[in-house]
């Protein structure tokens, strides 16, 4: 009997090394898997199990799907050993995804940290696809060091798009880095975003999300203008295994991108 836990067997077409700790899998599902920006997949590494990842490719590209993965533990280490031609499993997409219609006509401040730029790239790709619908896309991105900057090969292309700007910083510089040094929150200090017509979106490690959110609030964003990727541990992806709740919300089903106004009153919102 086919159950809701059955993974769809999917071929790895290519493996791109993004940074020493981040790789992108280019996958060719047997049938297209339509998804909305921000929705995520459960990826099976054969024999190792499943973990949640948000596609980093464009929702408008359905023949292949890219997933960008930081080596963080048992399963993701196995991901990093995958080679083109290997098989993996997919379930999904799960979650709500970003409310793109709400973003229309707005300025968007998109703030990423580390591998957090991967899920955001699906959003960026969706925004870039219809750039005339959005007033501005301002991207702020921080990584630990220059080697860890994800998708570096694409920054120039992004910056050249009309209405798109990108600023990058690293926690600590090395060698020939002449860009900014400091936490990503520093990039938010003198943003010229028009707060009365903007949304702020962020994805990254939970500790970063916390400080980015505090910064958003201190520069004048209201809670309901903030969307956070709450990437808690998940097992089923469908709101039934129980573990990823914040208050009455299941982050897998109701998120993972949550409006901060909905979750701010819960004491465990940042772990």
């Amino acid at each position: 009997m086919e159950t809701i836990f059955q993974p769809l067997e999917t071929k790895v077409l290519d493996v791109i090394t993004e940074t020493p700790t981040i790789k992108t899998l280019v996958l060719k599902p047997p049938e297209p898997i339509p998804f909305r920006a921000g929705q995520f997949m459960q990826l099976t590494v054969y024999g190792e199990g499943e973990a949640p990842f948000t596609p980093s490719s464009s929702p408008f590209e359905t023949e292949t799907m890219e997933i960008t993965i930081l080596k963080a533990g048992r399963l993701t280490e196995a991901v990093h050993r995958l080679k083109p031609g290997d098989m993996v499993g997919l379930r999904g997409p799960f979650g709500k995804g970003y409310p793109l219609h709400k973003f229309e006509g707005k300025e968007l401040l998109v703030v990423g940290g580390g591998v957090g730029l991967a899920p955001l790239r699906a959003l960026l790709n969706a925004l870039f696809h219809d750039l005339d619908k959005f007033k501005r896309v301002s991207i702020k991105y921080g990584a630990r060091n220059p080697d860890e900057l994800c998708f570096r090969r694409q920054y120039q292309q992004w910056q050249q798009l009309p209405g798109v700007d990108l600023e990058v910083t690293v926690d600590s510089a090395n060698g020939n880095w002449d860009g900014k040094v400091g936490l990503v929150t520093n990039l938010l200090d003198d943003t010229d975003i028009h707060l009365d017509n903007a949304f702020a979106v962020s994805c990254g490690p939970e500790i970063m999300l916390k400080f980015v959110t505090l910064k958003f609030l201190s520069i004048g964003f209201k809670a309901d203008q903030i969307y956070l990727s709450m990437n808690r541990k998940m097992s089923c992806g469908m709101g039934i295994c129980g573990r990823c709740n914040i208050g009455p919300y299941y982050l897998c089903k109701d998120g993972p991108d949550m409006n901060f106004a909905d979750i701010q009153q819960y004491p465990d919102v940042f772990g």
Binding site: F5, T44, Y46, G47, E48, G49, E50, S235, C236, I240, C241, G242, R243
Partner: peptide, 10 residues
């Protein structure tokens, strides 16, 4: 109570 965890075995 109905929480669960999934794991895979060879």
């Amino acid at each position: 109570c109905h929480c669960f965890l999934l794991y895979d075995l060879p």
